[in-house]
Amino acid sequence: MAKFQLKINGKQLSVDVDPSTPLLWVLRDHLHLVGTKYGCGAGACGACTVHLNGNALRSCQLPVSAVGTQAITTIEGIATSETEMHPVQKAWLELDVAQCGYCQTGQIMSAVALLKRNPNPTEAEIEAAMTGNICRCGTYIRIKAAIQKAAKSTTK
């Protein structure tokens, strides 16, 4: 067991866990931030995607001891304000993307990171950035359209 001070969604939070604990389980079990999902534990599905210093990362593959002072953002921390969602979340709602919904927070985190570094991605760039995120329900066409819509809404 060891104590870790984590900077999550702009707040300092502390946990006392085994240093090998993946960030995913720290978020879910210890900080009750359950929007970050467990899908495979092998970095193969993208359901656990969070941001580390703004870059998309599979939280199931990152031991909490490797986080240090780097800033973590989870789905719970991306809304524009307490009452307004992020433009990517809004696009997801407008295009009614979700079916079961389980993978969608991970999809959104990958999409937000993509648009941050590339506000106007081509179709091929979207596919490349998103291909690590599996949607078993097959909502890929809507996800792509939502990313394009969010890109338009933020760059106009």
Partner: peptide, 9 residues
């Protein structure tokens, strides 16, 4: 349930 889904409830 769209809002709950996209906000990770």
């Amino acid at each position: 349930v769209g809002k709950e889904i996209v906000s990770g409830q």
